[in-house]
Design a protein around this nucleic acid. Sequence first.
RNA 1: GCCGAGAUGACAGAGUGGCUAAUGUGACCGCCUGCAGAGCGGUUUUUCGGGAGUUCGAAUCUCUCUCUCGGCACCA
Length: 478
Amino acid sequence: MALRVYNTLTRETEDFVPLHGKKVNMYVCGPTVYDHCHLGHARSYVSFDVIRRYLIYKGYDVNYVSNITDVDDKVINRAKESGEDTFELSRKFTASFEEDMHALGVMEPDTRPKVTEHIEDIIDTVALLIEKGAAYSTPKGNVYYDLEKSADRIGILSHQTVEGLMEGSGCRIDVEDDKRYQLDFALWKRSPENETRWDSPWGRGRPGWHIECSVMSMKYCSEQLDIHGGGLDLIFPHHEAEIHQSESCTGMHPFSKYWMHNGFLTIDKEKMSKSLGNFFTIKEVLAKFPPGTIRFFIVYTHYRSTIDFSEEALVEAAKARKRLLNTISNVKHAVSEASDNDDDCGLSELIDETRTAFVESMDDDFNTREAIGNFFVFSRKINSIITDEKPGKAELENVLGFFTEINNVLGIFEDDSKKTSEKESSDLSDEEIRELIELREKARIDRDWATADSIRDEFKEKGIIIEDGKEGVRWRRI
RNA sequence: GCCGAGAUGACAGAGUGGCUAAUGUGACCGCCUGCAGAGCGGUUUUUCGGGAGUUCGAAUCUCUCUCUCGGCACCA
C-alpha cells in the first residue's frame, strides 16, 4: 500500500517516494516571533506534526527541521513600538511559541534553527548568489534576486503568470525601489542607524524575508528536500522565492520534491490573520479548552481543508473526543476486572481491521477525518464486546496498546482534562473517596436517595464523576 | 483582471462510477438505571447547489449556470 500526497508543485496527488530510500528530509516554515502565536499557527504545526509522526509510523527516518524567524521587519517594528530590544522581544515570543507547541503535543523538531544565529551563513549564500550572477547589489546597499534572468521560472509553484503577477493588486512600488525588475525580491536590506543590523559586504543591514529558509533548510536538511511544508499563504511569494534562491545556489532541481500546504483557519468564514485583527491566540483558547480538544479539533479536519473556528465547533470536537476517551476509560476499567481467560472475543481481529482502515485513510494524503471516523466504529464495537462478552485481560490490554499505537501518530487520545480543569481537582485521597462511596452505597441500599445524591453532588463539586454500573460504582476525576 | 478552492442530510464533515451515502454533534424514541452518567439499539437520512449530457448505472465523469470562500509581494 502506497502513501500518496498532494503536491502543490504539480497540483496532483502523487505516490510518495523520497529521494533517498527511507530517509525523509522535511522542512516546515516556522513562525515570525513578534507576538504570541494564534490558532492558525497551531493548525499548521499540528497538521505537519501529524504528517511527520505518520511518516515515522510508516518506518521512515524523518529529519524534521522547522525554523524561528526572529528578525525581520515585523520584529523590528514591533520592538520599536514597544521600546523593547529586538532580541528580548523575539526571545520572549520564541519561548511563548515553544510553550504552545509543547501544550499541543507537537514534537520537538530535530533542529529548530534561528535566523539571528545564521547571519554569517546567510551572507555567504547571498554572496554566492551574486557570484553566480543570480543576484545583484545596488548602490543603496540592497541585494536583490534577479528574477528577470529566470523569468520562465516565475510561477513554478504559485502557477501564476508574469502578466498575472504584474497586473495583480500586489503590483506595488516599494518605498525604496532600486530594483531592476518589478518582481525581484530582496535578499539583503540595508538598515538605518538605529535598527538591529549586521555588517555585510553591502553595508550594514539585515536579511530579506525569504533567504533564511533556503539557507537553513540546506544547512540542516539537505540541498534537496523531500517535503517542504507551510501554510497556503506562503506559496507566493515565500516558497517560490525559496525555490529560486536554493536552485540557483545548488544548481540542483527540484529544491523540494513535494510541497505541502495546510489550509486556513477562518472565523466567520474569514481568514484568521493578524492583519485582519480577527485572531485568537493559542493561549487564549488554551485558557478555555484542554489542549487535547484543540488538537483534536485540528486533526479531525483534513489538513488541506479550511476549518472554521468557533466555540461551538470546539465544543463539538470536545464531545466527539470524549466518546473515544470514554471508551478507553471503559477498557481500562474492564481490564481491572477482567479474568485471565483466553477466550477469543474477536478483539484482535477487530484491531487488525481497524488498523488496516486507519492506514488506508492516512495513506490517502493523510485523511485524518476518515481515519478518526474508523475509531468511532471501533469504539462502539469495543463497548459492545466489553458488556456482552467479558473478554479476558490479555485481549483488553491489546486494545489499550492499539490506542497507544495510534495515539503516537494522532496524539488525540491523551486524557489531559485533569491538567486544565478549572475546578480544584479534588484534594480527596483515594482512601477518602472509597469511604465516601461506601457511605453512599449504604444510603442507596436503604433507598435514601437524598443522601446518595448529595454525596454524588459533593463529588461533582470536587471534580469527581460517580457512575453506578451493574458491577458496582465507578469513579473518575474530571 | 489573473490564479485557486468549494457547494453533500438540522449542523459539521468523509466519500470520485455500482450492495440500504462513512463518521461526529443535535433532536427524538427504546434498552439499562431509584435518578443521573456512561454505554448499546433505532429514527431524523433514498439524498448529494440548479440544469443538460455520457453510461446498463453518477454525489462521483463532461458541459453549463448560480452562489460562497481564498491567494495575487505582511501572513501558518
